[in-house]
Design a binder for these strands. Sequence first.
DNA 1: TACATACAC
DNA 2: CATGGTGTATGTA
Length: 614
Amino acid sequence: MATGSSAPSAPAPPGSGEKSHLFNFTGISANKAGMGADRKLVADFVYEKSKNSQYTQHQLELDAKQQARAELVAKELRIAEARMSEIELLSERRKIEAELEALEKHRDLSRTHCVVDMDMFYAAVEIRDQPSLASKPVAIGGLGMISTANYVARLYGVRAAMPGFIAVEMVRNPAAIGSKMPPDELVFITPNFAKYTQVAMETREIFRQYDPHFRAMSLDEAYLDLTDYLAAHGVSAEAAVQEMRDRVKARTGITCSAGIGPNRMVAKIASDERKPDGQSQVLPTREAVLEFMDRLPVRKLPGCGKVLENQISIMLGVQTCAELRAAAARVKRAFQGRKTCSFLMRACLGLSSDELAEEGGEVGNVARKSLSCERTFRAESEPAELRGRLRDLCRQVSEDMAASVPPLAGRVVALKTKASSFEVRNKQISLIQPVGFSPNFGKGGEDGREHAEQETARVTQELYKLLEPVLEEQFPCHLRLMGVRVSSFRDQRATLDKGQQLISFFQSKGSEQQEGPSAGAGPDNLNTGMPKPQIQEANVIDLDSSQEDQRDKSRDPPVQSQSLPKGCLKRVVERLASRRAKRIRLSGVCCPVCGVRVPEDQANRHVNAHYGDQ
DNA sequence: TACATACAC
DNA sequence: CATGGTGTATGTA
């Protein structure tokens, strides 16, 4: 109700113990089921333990910036509103009503979607294989970061995405966070992704029987469209999902939770209602959906993170979806022109996007748009050391590009750095011709391993040559992380429409429901370095990107730059930058058949490969 | 295009 | 001793 009241006090400076936690320290949206610890005490505890770290200092700065921005917009909003006449306000209100009405027309209640989420997945697998752990507080991860915590650990306030060294202290001193648990030692388990992947495959085998086009969002989460299955088998969604969950449990020994709803967004939110080991359905009526949405804190909307939540709170004084809907006019004014505006309007009505599952197909069928590798290490400033790490990253990226299907070649390469101060920088370079592998790499027998190794080494070297100067630019520096990324893949256009995204993924059709008991929520925020899905749709034709350069390719003058002096390369970049984009010509020749660049000495062999020259 | 942000898992 | 890694979308210049 409160209008954008003058925002809460500014972020407490580091050091003030009590009002300490800024909104990001409470990114915890609500007390989890059976958490047994007081959320505020946990936030204060975490803050207290880390307030002097570089990480926290950096976070405080970011938060202050974000907070100031939100408050500024809030103020402008108030001014604008004060200036509006009754007439204007009324007419605006009518306009909004009409817009909501229009959105309502797109509501689709004809389908039944389901989201399945494995309970504390990684921890569950480990405990299954080592039952003696069941009664102990367990965390998957390490002192740096926790991926998943079992429910015992949660009673101590331990959560996914929490730094491990702090979790250790909470378990040793439960009283500090209001937990009645006895002091104990947190058990850490190093993640075993191969094992989790194996279990995930077993669950997917089951999911597939209910929806051959289901979509796996991660190892522990899947989206299914049950519409066809239910029609074919004449069973209720509730029964089908219960059966499916029973089968998952029987097969893997691990429980899961599920949400059922008329669209993916609603199903997703519902899946959180009765975990662990429970399911919840939002019935397919407009009334049920609205009733379900209305009591939801906006933070529960997939796509609404802590920043947007805070903006909505500061600028609109809104906490729940019901309030959001009631404040539609102000939402529009606050986020006008941004995607966020339509996203929020639709979301608070329980509207989402759907189908699409067919197109994306199963599991890893969505073409990736970038590939990267980054590593955190003990802050380092020695150039030689940093160069060595950069080379390792280039090698890893090269290998991953080679292992992709089809093998990748991209026109943009980037270097990411994070200073010991946690300041992050990204520098990218656009190339005329993609760096990477020919689409035929690895095919047609022969050459085999030796050739593969050679090619991988070549790509590694090229990436390094491009990025080493970029790193050089930052010296002197004190870095704690470096990352290498390649994007703008050769055949991106062929698969562009397959891209998925979180918001668009949830925007579009209708919904509804009924339901509702809320239980506890408990995001099992898994994940630490998920294995990258290496499955990519074989992208059809090679709509190669570098049309413009095609001309100089067939005859191709072997461009020499095999090894430009650093400064030289940099200058070239700057020169080319004047016009459109910075593009650098790489060494090697361009294959007249596939357009990919290959080393001169391999040109013949490469081209022959296109003609079945095994 | 380049870069920073936000978000999800 | 001391806050991860991979990927996508979006906003702004």
